[in-house]
């Protein structure tokens, strides 16, 4: 290891980044996955950046048209946030379902995306909510949709080791409801076999303008347009069409994989459960008069 920096601002981070040139860089958020991966084989050329001392990477704020979510916010802070539960329910679901209390206390939303695990829970929730990531690098600030960050390849994303995710912006969309659910091998503390996030506009029992993202089909979040169309169908056709679309999509994503029959079945379960959650949430928000947002 060449050095370890604990910058206190993005500006300081970028200055330090410029100094370390082509050295291998490690950006450390909660450190959990980093420690497991690098313990004992940290290269001598590595430069470490501890992101835990940067206030700009923190905070959950309602900015009227969008929610600002600092990338270093933990799963615990996210799922215990009332603002997130109200306006980004799917993300709240995802944060609550990840790992154990101990892991949720450390795992950050930025780290969960940056790590590019295909079984990660929050990326599909962020994607379904239309979240964008504010990324800084030596070439400046850029705003990428979460889908753009995820990219097309499994186990890697489109960020380089000099990119830092500062925050996420989640658009506030009135009359929208969202939900996330995963299926693992235990009811709690389990890596997802399949996970799915859905958001849609809800009115009088009908959905429209839906977004559907499925995790674990080779990458962290894949958008499924046919399932989105199915969700807008009339209620008598909706559930079956939704399931059919998901299964067909899974067949296209992981054709011939031995896990495909199980994933299809689990997707049908997720379809039922998520529809129920969405309807319940839709009815609750209509009833309360307080329209919640995606």
């Amino acid at each position: 290891m060449k050095g370890l920096f604990a910058p206190q601002s993005i500006k300081e981070f970028l200055a330090l980044l410029a100094e370390c040139g082509k050295n291998e860089k490690h950006l450390i958020a909660g450190g959990t996955d980093w420690l497991i991966k690098t313990r004992g084989n940290l290269s001598e050329e590595a430069v470490l950046f501890d992101l835990s001392k940067m206030p700009e990477l923190r905070g959950i704020e309602n900015k009227e048209s969008f929610l600002r979510l600092g990338s270093m916010e933990t799963m615990t802070s996210i799922h215990s946030s009332g603002v997130i539960r109200l306006h980004a329910t799917a993300l709240s679901d995802a944060a609550a379902s990840m790992g154990s209390v101990q892991i949720r206390n450390r795992a950050t939303v930025g780290g969960n995306l940056a790590n590019a695990s295909p079984a990660a829970d929050t990326p599909s929730a962020l994607a379904v909510l239309g979240a964008s990531a504010v990324v800084f690098s030596l070439s400046g600030r850029r705003v990428l949709s979460v889908e753009e960050v995820l990219g097309p390849c499994p186990n890697k994303n489109t960020l380089s080791d000099s990119d830092i995710i500062m925050e996420f912006c989640i658009p506030l969309r009135k009359e929208y409801v969202s939900a996330f659910k995963k299926i693992g091998s235990r009811s709690e503390v389990s890596i997802a076999r399949v996970n799915m996030a859905v958001s849609a506009r809800y009115e009088d029992g009908n959905f429209s303008d839906a977004r559907v993202f499925i995790g674990t089909l080779g990458s962290a979040a894949k958008r499924c347009p046919s399932a989105e169309t199915a969700l807008s169908m009339e209620t008598s056709l909706r559930e079956q069409s939704f399931k059919d679309a998901l299964c067909e999509f899974a067949g296209q994503m992981i054709p011939g994989r031995s896990t495909l029959p199980y994933k299809k079945s689990a997707l049908m379960a997720l379809a039922e459960d998520l529809l129920e959650m969405l309807e319940e949430r839709g009815r609750a928000s209509e009833k309360s008069g307080e329209k919640s947002h995606g």
């Binding site: 076999r193 896990t259 029959p261 199980y262 079945s265």
Partner: peptide, 11 residues
């Protein structure tokens, strides 16, 4: 009886 085996049995 893993989830996959149960799902297969149901099928």
């Amino acid at each position: 009886l893993t989830p996959a085996k149960i799902v297969e049995a149901v099928a």
